[in-house]
């Protein structure tokens, strides 16, 4: 078995989770600071609920171990983390620091990787991309920082004898990939059906440990994160050309005729 592989029967998994503004109320960019306005309450990114569920199932299948969470959010925000704890994760690390304002994907990966390293997990799970920022680079960045192999875009994950067996989505279909642990896997939405937190789970989550850390606690120089550490800057925010809505009809039983006329007019028919 490779070095660092789990003892038979236990499996420790860290899941990266993001707490985002409710997509039903996506907010806006602050024109002065050029960062996302984060006024309202944050929720667990739905994309991350799949990773949490996957982790819980893998630990259960291994017969023991622990699912813990790492997250980075402003203002010690924990409401989204509590949702994942209510699903069954045991504990969390939250990195919250004013110095992180404006941090890009690479800076985020540096922070999360430093937090993950404290747990020395057998497996790190992340979503392929967040629902609000969707850069989709953070999982590979974390793996590179931690010196781990990674399999991104997993649509199925199983662990057998210290090896992750993953079906990885491709343009044409999927690849079967085998990857020795420790490793990082990013999972797609739909990989598993996330459980709803039970009432008992919600109550238990209130007392589960959430370790609040700053950038300095992780030994990261504040100058390497935030706006200053990013190496990029927003130069303009403009409204995209809007698409005009056309005609709208209530179906009176003849809608199909309107569609056919529309297609004939375009010479599709």
């Amino acid at each position: 078995m490779p070095e660092g592989a789990p003892d038979l029967g236990t499996m420790n998994v860290v899941v990266c989770v993001k707490q985002i503004p409710d997509p039903a109320d996506p907010g806006a960019l602050d024109p002065t600071t050029k960062t996302l306005k984060r006024d309202g309450k944050l929720i667990l990114d739905e994309s991350d609920s799949y990773g949490v569920e996957m982790a819980l199932q893998l630990v259960a299948a291994a017969g023991g171990g622990e699912v813990s969470l790492v997250s980075m959010a402003p203002n010690n925000e924990v409401s989204g983390i509590r949702t994942a704890l209510a699903m069954g994760a045991a504990s969390a690390i939250l990195v919250s620091d004013p110095a992180l304002k404006g941090t890009d994907a690479l800076g985020t990966a540096k922070v999360l990787a430093a937090a993950i390293a404290r747990k020395s997990p057998d497996l790190v799970i992340a979503a392929t991309e967040s629902s609000d920022g969707y850069t989709g680079t953070v999982p590979a960045q974390i793996a590179e920082i931690l010196g781990l192999p990674s399999v991104t875009f997993a649509k199925s994950v199983a662990i057998e004898g210290g090896v992750a067996k993953v079906q990885r989505q491709t343009e044409a279909g999927y690849d079967e990939v085998e990857c020795p642990l420790p490793a990082l896997v990013s999972v797609t939405a739909g990989v598993v059906e996330p459980r709803y937190p039970s009432f008992k789970g919600i109550m238990a989550a209130k007392s589960k440990p959430v370790d609040m850390l700053t950038v300095a606690d992780l030994g990261i120089d504040a100058g390497r994160v935030g706006w200053a550490g990013g190496g990029q800057e927003i130069v303009d925010i403009v409204a995209a050309p809007a698409r005009q809505a056309g005609e709208k009809f209530e179906d009176d039983g003849t809608a199909h005729e309107r569609i056919i006329a529309f297609l004939e007019n375009l010479k599709i028919l």
């Binding site: 490779p2 793996a143 590179e144 010196g147 781990l148 192999p149 990674s150 399999v151 993953v166 990885r168 491709t170 044409a172 279909g173 999927y174 690849d175 079967e176 990939v177 085998e178 990857c179 020795p180 490793a183």
Partner: peptide, 14 residues
Amino acid sequence: GATGGAKVTSRFVE
């Protein structure tokens, strides 16, 4: 090194 540990064992085309 370790980062190259993942290997494709088979490919499926849908």
